[in-house]
């Protein structure tokens, strides 16, 4: 099945990004395709390569990048939400791209299921 995911909260502040990641991983393990994750609201902060968690903590940003690389997941950051919050091409982590809200609409029309994680 073709699954889309929406993440509305930033990393470390809220559990949403962790829940979304663990859901995505489980879906892929079960043989489903997670074709797109759309990051909106503070969720755009998941794409900052400047993020540096303490050594003993999970690296939420790298985890998403790795998922994108290994399973061809399209990680899309909303441009309007990103610009508001200082996320730009120059600080974008690997595997993420910045695009418009149309990509979220497309995630809705082209996915068999769309699952939202937020506050």
């Amino acid at each position: 099945m073709k699954l889309g995911i929406v993440v509305n909260e930033g990393p470390y502040q809220h559990q949403a990004s962790d829940s979304a990641y663990l859901f995505a991983k489980a879906a892929i393990e079960a043989g489903h395709e997670v074709w797109r994750v759309f990051f909106y609201h503070d969720g755009v902060n998941n794409a900052s390569k400047l993020t540096e968690p303490p050594q003993d903590d999970r690296n939420i940003v790298n985890r998403w990048s790795k998922l994108a690389e290994e399973h061809k997941v399209d990680l899309v950051v909303c441009v309007a939400a990103a610009l508001r919050r200082g996320i730009r091409e120059e600080n974008l982590a690997t595997g993420f791209r910045i695009s418009g809200l149309g990509q979220l609409v497309e995630a809705g029309t082209k996915s068999d299921r769309l699952v939202t994680f937020g506050d």
Partner: peptide, 17 residues
Amino acid sequence: DYAGFVELVVANKTCQS
């Protein structure tokens, strides 16, 4: 568990958070 979460999403036509 998370695998069960995925199964619930698949089994239902729509999901609402």
